[in-house]
């Protein structure tokens, strides 16, 4: 991810970060991105998430 894209991304989500804070934030986000990538893994598109929508029957 380029520096320009990272700045754009930060602006896009409405965060206002001081210029000298940006490198530190970018490093943290890079770690988070790597963690997210690990979580993704190879899965079947049919695999269900753990959280389920629940509807209680009429009482």
């Amino acid at each position: 991810m380029s520096d320009v894209s990272f700045e754009a991304r930060v602006r896009a989500v409405g965060l206002r970060v001081a210029a000298d804070e940006l490198p530190k934030l970018q490093a943290i986000v890079a770690d988070l991105d790597r963690a997210a990538q690990t979580v993704r893994g190879q899965r079947s598109y049919a695999e269900e998430p753990l959280s389920a929508f629940r509807l209680k029957p009429v009482t």
Binding site: Y45, A46, E48, P49, S51, A52, F53, R54, L55
Partner: peptide, 16 residues
């Protein structure tokens, strides 16, 4: 009603 019929083996679009 959500949950009355199985969706297993049907290509999903939006799980919930």
């Amino acid at each position: 009603t959500y949950g009355l019929c199985s969706r297993r083996g049907v290509l999903p679009l939006s799980n919930t």
